[in-house]
Design a protein around this nucleic acid. Structure first.
Length: 878
RNA sequence: GCGGGCGUGGCGGAAUGGUAGACGCGACAGACUCAAAAUCUGUUUUCGCAAGAAGUGCCGGUUCGAGUCCGGCCGCCCGUACCA
């Protein structure tokens, strides 16, 4: 066996898998299926280490499951619509379509050398008309089911460029190109009725046993179920038609702490006042400044304006509360109006303090005296507090009990009713942009809004568009907009909004089961392959993408495109961390930062210090430098000394990126794959280091050398320690299997290091060594499939390692006859003993107490208690 | 602001409430070499000659026993509905 040369073996095995169609997914009723899916990439043009990590994780699972006998589906596609393509067209000219498809071709070319076990015959891009046409068909089906509607919603409006901005395009409240202060403006937009499913999406979270707890919690908080009281204030001094003001509160127990009422600037009453009062108009305009993000709204200074209108307290008509318009009240939540209880709500407190409103306390800590508050007192609802202005239930009770009692009391008195509210808003899918899936509807003067006929689908994006002026090119396209009404045949106008790209990614997993079908899905295929058994992707998608997908699967079931079992499309979810790298920075003469690529700097140790310099220079001889500080200063003066900033997510702007292509070129795909799986637990960030990649390559070379050495052994060599080799191998099989099952790939790799080290030192019989290294190859195969195939074949393995059945550990080899037990005295480890594994606790106790070190430490003190945890530990309490 | 997460040697990390630091990197020492690289062997939490003591961001609690569970802080990261 020659030297380890990834460049020779990797293309060879990739070709062998291609020829054998090893990874082609086939419906096989005789075998259990396994569908593993990684979140598909956006085709930015280059793959990065994050992709390598994500897809290697999925590949480990896919290859492992295939070896276990599953019929595996492991597809790949492209999340290809979105703003970057339009930005590229604006900046560099060209067309989003050409840019996108060129990027896809380039990324596919970069991905193939990784040796991923992907069924490439199922590949598609969401910008393929064959894909988005089916999406349009489903949109029409959803319209028919009442799951789609139109309403007004606010967008970021750039008053200079006269265009809608994405949140991302709003920087510090200003448009990214025009630098003009952004305004909020209302447009009529398309919505999916995800709120119909609020309760269902919440309760079904309980069934997602193999999702991370944190993701389920985040989704539950996002859906935000709350039980509260909705009631109406009677108003005085309000315009006609506004003699009642509906408000919603989750804390009806604090009704007697009300000191004001407040309405959203978007509330109908505010809008009415705006039209008749220039001061209100000016104030509301003020409120509408700034972006639409929750963060921008919440962190904005709280401002309010007294409307002069008063409301009567429902329990005491002598109490009048002022009605404010306040910028922190959201029209989308509850009734768009609240009563303010400053004593027990942080925002209300801030507001009341600012506008000099009273702050009546409703409850105080158990056993406390009433005091003047300098901040809102907001205990957990489960905490028991003393009510001093309560009106229902006991004086001493938990918030939960008080709220329930308050709702019951209010309902009995005819003041409002208990309602369950959700924070989850309907999904606004309208985007005023070109590069997305056209919404397949037509506006007719006579018939109104009409769905396009299905036989006219796909509604294709026109190719002849330009991006030289801001805004949606579809809006100004000379002919595309003009069409005929599918209903009456009159001249009509096509909808120019396109769909949110989250729609594209909400059903691609289902499409992979029948990627070339002329309907969105095919029942038999969906029935065989769904659900996704293991979904893998970034934690940044924990809420939106996953929630939208869960909704869309339900909508697809409601419209006959998915079986009932697929309404929760992802059985198991794994959220992986990012790949990070140190940042290398120098400063130019003007003090501006300059960032450097990792390959453009050199690091070395010098007098216990780590020094990083620009360029590819050899480390200096420390003995030759008299004054290291002066030497460093000189380097710094010439701008060659590099500041090292701790690891952060790889980003082009900080240049802390490592191109996977360079790593594959230098070390091969197996090294890249092994390294991204090895160092950190997969759910955490992994730091890419050049030394780590080096070390991985050295390790794989050692495995290769070991394989070579075993190959050179005479066939009849007897050696010693075959039983130990068998035991070490069995333990590695057990450990690697368990680790892959639990996504602890870093531990699987630690076990593989262990077995390799054992074998490298072993001198067993040729037969035992060959058997052990074949098993090692199989265990490595999910991580480093190419070198595994080479070793497998060289050592006489039958067929491809990729299709060989996963090894099983003989349970008899896994148990040791004796165990070592640490002995603690008062919880501190003082000694250890070795005992047969089945020894009864009473015997173990005797031996422990007789132990020399134990006797010494006890020094005759009486033993109060002795705890023996079999096979684990002994603790002596004195 | 709100929601969620994370914090362990010089570094990445390991540890069903039961021997803290597996495995890897780096560093140091040794072997081989004229020498270097490569390779191999060993040492490596801190303090201490040792016996021993301390130690998992900080403060407190539960427990025979806490990195792990609970409460409060600090720091960093992710999401926050038009980035994907």
């Amino acid at each position: 066996m020659s030297r380890y040369e990834p460049k020779t073996i990797e293309p060879k095995w990739q070709a062998a898998w291609d020829v054998a169609e090893t990874f082609k997914a086939r419906r096989d009723p005789a075998r259990p299926k396994y569908y593993v899916l990684e979140m598909f990439p956006y085709p930015s043009g280059r793959i990065h280490m994050g992709h390598v990590r994500n897809y290697t994780m999925g590949d480990v699972v896919a290859r492992y499951k295939a070896a276990q006998g599953f019929s595996v589906l492991h597809p790949m596609g492209w999340d290809a619509f979105g703003m970057p393509a339009e930005n590229a067209a604006m900046e560099r000219g060209g067309h989003p379509k050409e840019w996108t498809y060129a990027n896809i071709a380039e990324m596919r070319k970069q991905m193939k050398p990784l040796g991923l076990s992907i069924d490439w015959s199922r590949e598609f891009a969401t910008c393929d008309p064959e894909y988005y046409g089916q999406q349009q068909a489903m949109f029409i089906d959803m319209m028919a089911k009442g799951l789609v509607y139109r309403k007004n919603a606010v967008v970021n409006w750039d008053p200079v460029d006269m265009t809608v901005l994405a949140n991302e395009q709003v920087i510090d409240g200003k448009g990214w190109r025009s630098n003009a202060a952004v305004e909020r403006r209302e447009l009529t937009q398309w919505f999916f009725k995800i709120s119909d499913y609020s309760a269902e999406l919440l309760s079904a979270l309980d069934g997602l046993k193999d999702w991370p707890e944190k993701v389920r919690l985040m989704q539950a908080n996002w859906i935000g179920q709350s039980r509260g009281l909705q009631f109406a204030f009677t108003t005085t001094g309000a315009p006609e038609g506004f003699d009642r003001l509906e408000v919603y509160t989750t804390r009806p127990d604090t009704l007697l702490g009300a000191s004001f009422a407040a309405i959203s600037p978007d509330h109908p009453l505010a809008k009415h006042l705006e039209r008749h009062d220039s001061a209100v108009e000016a104030f509301v305009a003020d409120c509408r400044k700034g972006g639409t993000t929750a963060e921008a709204m919440e962190t904005a200074e709280k401002i309010g304006m007294d409307t002069g209108i008063r409301v009567l307290h429902p329990f005491d008509n002598s109490i009048e509360l002022p009605v404010y318009i306040a910028n922190f009240i959201l029209m989308d939540y509850g009734a768009g109006a609240i009563f303010g209880c400053p004593a027990h709500d942080a925002r209300d407190f801030e507001f009341a303090t600012k506008y000099g409103l009273p702050i009546p306390t409703v409850f105080i800590p158990e056993g406390a005296e009433e005091v003047t508050l300098d901040e809102a007192y907001v205990p957990m609802k489960s905490e028991r507090v003393q009510y001093i202005r309560g009106f229902a239930g006991n004086d001493l009770q938990t918030g939960e009990d008080a709220i329930a009692a308050a709702i019951a009391a209010c309902e009995a008195q005819g003041v409002g009713r208990g309602v369950t509210n959700y924070r989850l808003r309907d999904w606004g899918i309208s985007r005023q942009r070109y590069w997305g899936c056209p919404i397949p509807v037509i506006h007719c003067a006579t018939c109104g809004v009409v769905a396009e006929k299905k036989e006219n689908l796909p509604v294709r994006l026109p190719d002849d568009v330009t991006f030289d002026i801001p805004g949606n090119p579809l809006d100004r396209h000379p002919t595309w907009r003009n069409c005929t009404c599918p209903n009456c045949g009159a001249d009509a106008r096509r909808e120019t909004d396109t769909m949110d790209t989250f729609v594209d990614s909400s059903w691609y997993y289902a499409r992979f089961t029948a990627p070339h079908a002329t309907t969105p899905t095919i029942a038999e295929d969906a029935d065989y392959w769904m659900n996704v058994d293991q979904y893998i992707g970034g934690i940044e998608h924990a809420i939106l993408h996953l929630l939208y997908s869960r909704f869309f699967a339900r909508a697809m079931h409601a419209t006959g495109h998915l079986p009932a079992k697929a309404i929760e499309p992802f059985n198991a979810l794994f959220t992986q961390g990012m790949v990070t790298h140190e940042i290398y920075k120098t400063t130019d003469a003007a003090g501006r930062p300059i960032y450097h690529l990792p390959e453009d700097v050199t690091s070395f140790s010098l007098a216990d210090r780590r020094v990083t310099v620009l360029g590819d220079v050899p480390p200096p001889d420390p003995d030759m430098i008299a004054d290291i500080d002066a030497w460093l200063q000189a380097l710094n003066d010439e701008g060659a000394l590099v500041e090292v900033i701790p690891s952060a997510k790889m980003s082009k702007s900080k240049k802390n990126v490592v191109d996977p292509m360079n790593i594959i070129e230098a070390f091969g795909a197996d090294t890249a794959r092994w390294f991204v799986m090895s160092d950190s637990p997969p759910e955490r960030d992994v730091e890419w280091t050049a030394s780590g990649a080096d070390a991985t390559f050295k390790h794989l070379s050692r495995v290769w050398a070991l394989c070579s050495r075993i190959g050179d052994m005479p066939a009849d060599h007897q050696g010693v320690g075959d039983q130990d080799i068998a035991k070490a191998t069995a333990k590695a099989v057990e450990e690697v299997t368990r680790s892959i099952e639990t996504f602890a790939f870093n531990k699987a790799i630690a076990a593989l290091y262990g077995l390799t080290n054992t074998l490298a030192k072993a001198n067993g019989s040729t037969l035992a060594m060959k058997q052990a290294i074949r098993t090692l190859a199989q265990l490595m195969c999910p991580m480093t499939p190419h070198i595994a195939e080479s070793i497998w074949t060289f050592q006489g393995g039958a067929g491809l390692c990729a299709t060989a059945p996963w090894p099983k550990a003989d349970p008899a080899l896994l148990v040791d006859d004796t165990v070592t037990l640490p002995i603690q005295i008062n919880g501190k480890r003082r000694a250890e003993i070795s005992v047969p594994k089945d020894m009864p606790a009473s015997e173990v106790e005797k031996i422990a107490l007789a132990d020399e070190a134990v006797v010494k430490f006890l020094a005759g003190a009486p033993v109060k208690k002795i705890i023996v945890v079999p096979g684990r530990i002994i603790n002596v309490v004195v």
